[in-house]
Write a protein that binds this DNA or RNA. Structure first.
Lengths: 191, 191
DNA sequence: TCAAATCATTGACAAATGTCCTGTGAAGGC
DNA sequence: GCCTTCACAGGACATTTGTCAATGATTTGA
């Protein structure tokens, strides 16, 4: 009997009874999106934090020169949104869209805070997840500080081996902060 | 009548009675350090998260080539530690040291969790602070993705105007991920 | 006070990366 | 099935950044 992926993730941090998990789940809305569908437009309010049940999303920004920068990918069991716009209820400076058909559980800020308040366990869960996210971002920054593009690429490879099969190399390059030409040269030298 | 800086910071997020704040404060230890003193050595366990009352600290790593990379500065009212080592109770991969004589309030992980558990307000505070930190790191990453060294420098200038007067330019360069020579050339073109 | 260490700047050159371009398959829409 | 787009590799050249070395100014400490 397989458990719900969200429950599995929560129970890595705190334990829940069946009734408690049902109560948690009631705060989410299921939303599905098509490949290429834009889920959050730059300039709109970020109404939801998305837990990816199935599929692949990304958060990106196009700068004034028209260049696209990918801040984050979100595969199964990842949380994804414009964190600033969501938590501060301001207009988004980022775009969230789908690289594959995607099924999500969506949480409003209101429901997140309600959950946190009514179930301290859930606040503990959110705190732990956010702390882990913070640590991951620190590592990515250290990678920018101390590694060249080649090392960053191999670091990404080992961190998310499945990603390469699911997204074009140009997007990997964008995530790494280099042009696709540069990435192409790096992967060439390998052989 | 001036309030305690920690209380001011907490009360930006949740309100506390005098008794509650006293109870919070009892979980901290006051620690002072001399300029150049190393507070956390690479390889040691990160016993504390430091709230900087007065002074200036930094978190850095020296890579295998001997190059030093600065992950974070910590001025007054900042929290600073090796987040991963602290929260996972593992050996630190980073160094924390003081750029000035520094007075801190130090919190162990045990006390942090105790506070979070016994005072839900404090967990709310920690969650909000961590979320804000997460957002700040995302912005720094976007800066690496979309800005050249010059723009990153000016972004840092506007973000922390006081920092330039307190730390040598070589450290600013290290924080920005460029060599001091490069930074020197960038600031030269200004005039 | 003087010597040593630190800090910033600059030049010459090398290496890494960006930009612009072409060509070639493969994948997707009608 | 055909046509358009997309994905990727690669070349030629420009720009940015790193590396190494030298210099002078400032600060630090005995």
């Amino acid at each position: 009997m397989s458990q719900h992926p969200l429950r599995i993730q929560i129970e890595e941090i705190v334990t829940l009874s069946d009734a408690e998990f049902d109560r948690v789940l009631a705060h989410f809305q299921e939303k599905t999106f098509k490949k290429h569908q834009i889920v959050l437009h730059q300039g709109d309010y970020a109404s939801f934090d998305f837990f990816v049940v199935k599929g692949l999303m990304r958060v990106s920004r196009v700068d004034p020169d028209g260049k696209e920068h990918i801040l984050q990918f979100g595969m199964e069991n990842w949380w994804i949104t414009d964190a600033e716009a969501f938590h501060r209820q301001t207009k988004s400076t980022l775009t969230v869209d789908c690289l594959e058909d995607t099924k999500t559980l969506s949480l409003t800020l209101e429901n997140k805070e309600k959950l946190s308040k009514e179930m301290p366990k859930m606040q503990t869960f959110f705190l732990k997840k956010t702390t882990n996210g913070y640590i991951a971002l620190q590592k990515r920054i250290l990678c920018f500080l101390s590694s060249n593009a080649n090392d960053r690429y191999h670091n990404l490879l080992s961190l998310y081996p499945g990603l390469m099969q699911r997204v074009p190399k140009a997007m990997i390059a964008s995530y790494l902060g280099v042009t696709r030409e540069t990435l192409s040269r790096l992967t060439k030298v390998e052989s």
